[in-house]
Computed example of a mutant assay.
Amino acid sequence: MAITRRSLLKGSAVAAAALPVSAMAAAAAAPPVERLPIWPGPPPGGAGLRVRDEVVKRSPGGPADDIAWPHVATPMLNVVRAATPNGGAILYVPGGGYARVAVGREGSGIARAFAARGYMVFELLYRLPHDGWAAGPDAPLQDAQRAMRLIRASAGTWGIDPARIAAIGFSAGGHLTARLASRSALRTYDPVDAADAHSARPAVAGLFFPVITMAEPAAHAHSKRELLGTDARPERVARFSAERHLPPDMPPTFVAHAANDKVVSPANSLTMFAALQAARIPSELHIFETGGHGLPLREKGEEHPWPALFERFAGRHGL
């Protein structure tokens, strides 16, 4: 599922309002969002498919850029530049329950909030399993791996440190981010150019109200159905449960959820944190009392603590 309306529908205005005056000025001075495809040609595994990019409004009366993509033929990055860069970058992976990708074209409020903090932010529009790609449930992972490699390969162009690239994911995007972090070395596609020689491993991972496990009873039914289809054999459930088989080089990982999330059970975050601790991966968990399926940038007129908490954790680990 997607980030709640509290954090995205208000867009850049909400992000700016959550920041001090200096950060608001930086956000206002930021260049327009750039968009670029992540593959030099057609994405892998699409032979014979007739997938077309399709956009729908997330709510009839919502802002023009409050959109989602139920079909993605051209995986893209939105590049949200920092007005005052600090050399760090973030790959932002939105949610949508693997049924759609909830990201606009103009930069989300959360992306602009982190850009105002000095980070170059790259929002990922990724492909969906239901469109029939040859890689099936690994098609989104192909795009996430390619995006990370492309960002790292072009670090000099963007003015960022290739060692200071984090990945943050929300809801089903949290599942994809967790898989990117734990399966960065998994070869999901054949290299297509020099960018694919670079590592797909993020320096730090942030998982926010994430879908994690495909196992009952905590599995998010909608994401599980979209990802696995009708084939939910135990071995497939295990393979696509993000808490399973964490490698020793799993990046330091920050996990956050709201206790009153009625869409994705907080048990997902608890399960992931337990797995991270068992694997001795540097990790931090925050369960907030309220927030529902999403963590807002502001709450009751005050800046919500989660961006600063993530930034502090990530800063300790190289971002």
Rank of each mutant, 00 (worst) to 15 (best):
F209Y: 15
L227E: 08
A203F: 01
R244S: 11
F240I: 03
A178P: 02
P202I: 07
T188C: 13
V211M: 02
F209S: 08
L207K: 09
G206K: 08
A219W: 10
P217F: 05
R183H: 11
I165R: 06
L207Q: 10
A200H: 06
A221C: 04
I212Q: 06
S171F: 01
S223A: 14
S199T: 11
A178H: 01
P191Y: 05
H220W: 05
F209M: 11
R164V: 01
D190S: 12
G169F: 00
H198L: 11
E216M: 07
H245N: 15
A185N: 09
A238C: 02
D190K: 10
E226T: 02
F170K: 01
A205Q: 07
G173W: 04
R201K: 15
F170I: 12
T230N: 14
S199R: 10
R183A: 06
I165W: 11
A203L: 06
L176Y: 08
A194D: 15
P217E: 08
H222W: 12
G173T: 00
E235G: 03
R233G: 15
V192C: 14
A185M: 09
M214A: 10
A205N: 09
Y189E: 14
A185W: 08
H245F: 13
A221R: 15
S184M: 02
K224P: 00
H198R: 14
A232H: 09
R187E: 13
E235D: 14
L180Y: 04
R179D: 11
A166Q: 05
H222R: 15
L180T: 00
A185P: 01
L207M: 13
R183C: 07
A238S: 13
F170G: 07
S182I: 02
A221Y: 09
H222L: 14
D196V: 04
D231I: 01
V204M: 09
A218W: 10
A219N: 12
A238N: 11
F208M: 14
L228P: 02
L207W: 09
A218G: 01
F208I: 15
P202T: 05
I212Y: 09
E216F: 00
E226K: 07
A178Y: 02
S199H: 04
P210A: 04
R239P: 00
A195R: 12
D231H: 05
P210C: 03
A219L: 08
A232C: 12
R183F: 02
A221V: 12
D193P: 06
A166V: 03
I165T: 03
A194E: 14
A232E: 14
S223W: 05
F240W: 14
F170M: 08
R187V: 12
A238E: 13
A163H: 13
D231C: 02
H245V: 08
A205P: 04
A242Q: 10
A194M: 10
D190L: 12
P191N: 00
R244Y: 01
V204E: 11
T177H: 10
H198A: 15
R244N: 14
E235K: 00
F240G: 02
L228T: 01
V204D: 09
L246K: 01
R233P: 03
V204G: 06
A166F: 05
R183D: 04
A194R: 15
A242R: 06
A163L: 13
A185K: 13
H220L: 00
A178Q: 03
H175W: 10
P191M: 04
E216P: 05
D193H: 07
E235N: 06
T213N: 11
L207G: 08
S241W: 03
L176H: 07
E226C: 07
G206E: 08
